[in-house]
Every structure is written in C-alpha cells, then in structure tokens.
Amino acid sequence: MNIKVNETPIRTSRNFGINNIKLTDIKIPKNSKIFKSIEITNVKESSNDVISKKLTYGNGEILEKNVSENANHKVKIETKNSKDLIKIIYDFDDENTELINEIEIIGNKDANVIIEYKSNTDKKCFHNGIIRTIVNEGCKLNVAIVNMLNSESNNFEAMENELFKDSKLKYTIIDLGGKTSVTNYYSNILGENSNNDLKTIYLGKENEIKDLNYIAEVRGEKANIDIDVQGALGENCKKNFKGTIDFKKGCKKAKGDENEFCLLLSDTARSIALPMLLCTEDDVEGNHSTASGKVDSKSLFYIMSRGLSYKEAVKLIVKSNFNKIIERIKDEEIKEEILKEIDRRLN
C-alpha cells in the first residue's frame, strides 16, 4: 500500500517534496505471530502493560494504528539500578520477520538502555515500533537505538520522550539498515534545567530511502536540546532530514543547537535537509547549521599517500566522522557489530 509518513510541525510547499513523504508498495502486516527471537538483558521487572496514548507526531496514522492494533511484542521497563546495562535485542531470522513493537521506558534511576534490531536472514523484514520514554525528575537516562536490518527491509520507528525537572536524556540513534528507514523523534522538554542530547548517524546506499524527522519542543526554563546528525550517502540513496527546535513561550534562558552534516559519496545521491527553528520566546539562544559535500580531497590524498586504497580511505573518513557518536554506545560487542556493518556497507 501507499503511505505518507513524517509530517513536520510547519507545512512547506508541496514542490519541495520533503514533508509528509509518500512511500509506495509498503506491505504492512496484520496478525503477525508473536516475535520470539528476543534477548532481554538486565531487566528484573518488566511488563507488557505499556501506555498506548496517542503520539504527538509519530510516523503517520496508518503506522500508529498498526502498532496499537497489531503489536506482537510489548515491553515496559522501569529503571531501578544505575549500574545495569539494559539490552533488548530483536534478532530477525527466517521464522521471525515481522516485528510490531511498543516499548515504554520509565527513567526513575540513572540507566543505560540499548535496543537493537538486526537481521540473521536474507528475507525481507518489517519493523514498525513505538518507544515512549519518560525521564523523571533528576534522573539521567542513556538510550541507544541500533538499526542493522538487512537491505531488503522496511524499518519504521517513532520515539516520544517527556523530560522533567533536572533530568537528562542522552539519545543515540544508529540508523544503518533497511531499504526504507523512517524515524520520527519527538521530545517534550518540559522541566526546568532538563537536557536532551540527541546524536545520530545514518548510512544509506543503493536505492535506499532515509527519512528522519526530529522535533524538540522546549518548554522548561534553562532547558537544553542538542541535536547532532552525521550521515553518508552512496549510490542513488535519498535522504530527508527534518529537524525542528521549537522554543515555546516561557522557556526562558533555554538553548538549542542543531547540526547536520551529510557526506555525499556519489554524484547521484540526494540529500534534502529542512532544519527549522521556531521561536515564541525571546530570551533563548537557538542555532542550527547544515552542510553537505563530498569527501575532502586533502584528507583522501593524505590517507592514500600512506598506502591505503581509495575505498579504504573513504571508509576511514566516514568512520572518523561517525566515531564520536558510536563511542556513546556502552556495549563493546554492539559497538564492534556497528563498525563491521559500516565496513560491510561501504564495500
């Protein structure tokens, strides 16, 4: 079926082709069997009693309804022990190719959470998920989402966060997999002194589509949002990045920074960016920047003069751009997997 995904808070001219993009021939499964290939680590108490309230933005009505009616895995986690690294690994295989999931994370204590989607099958996989995160007063939460699905798959993820007073949410998104990968990230930064730090890497190739729609509404006084997106696009890949920082009235002394850099590895790749700053409060500081370009020829020359091939040199440059973000992943094994996947995708 044809679906429209990822609408921005402010409409743009239809001719720009960036808002509410149309995806064709997306098969949205219903009545999928329970997804069984899951590994959950360090979760002492979890339940499947997740809040199913309507998303503020999300990936569109059809996909949201698909989750609320057909989820084949739900998990609710309340963090209780700051030393634990919580991992949820969805390992797609020949028997488990469809995942429609809902995750709720309640941050009561400082914690690290990693959610990974990977394919151990060549079959086309489908993932449509919602992750809701609440970061309670004074709590620090690190959440990492790692998408390493195979190149035939469709990946849809909607993330929605609420941040209360003095809380800190460090969010890392590693978006490598999927023929089509659509992510919607919405943060409601409510509390005074609350801080949301979001860093993303994406890597697209062939005819893949990446659509990223990040929205941060800043409401708390002295609140902070920092968005940093680093990407690389090869072959005929098309990427849309839509980033919105919306300073709401009353968020005095709030700060917001948004940065996107897209490395173009092919002359047929297409990078569209819409970095928006919306502001109804004067006592704030907001900055955004975007940049695109090919691999720096001086860096290439330097690396190749040390005996590396062109391909190896490009890999090194891409990885060096991504490295500071990959370093945020707290699990060495997953970090290794990410680096290997980048190597594989750049071959």
């Binding site: 720009f16 173009l264 990078s271 700053l277 975007t290």
Partner: peptide, 11 residues
C-alpha cells in the same frame, strides 16, 4: 521562525 529547505543532488 526559520524554515529553509536544502536540496543537494550532486556530490
């Protein structure tokens, strides 16, 4: 408000 669209089609 700042609403810029940047559409880059070559490397």
């Amino acid at each position: 408000d700042t609403i810029p669209v940047n559409d880059i089609r070559t490397d």
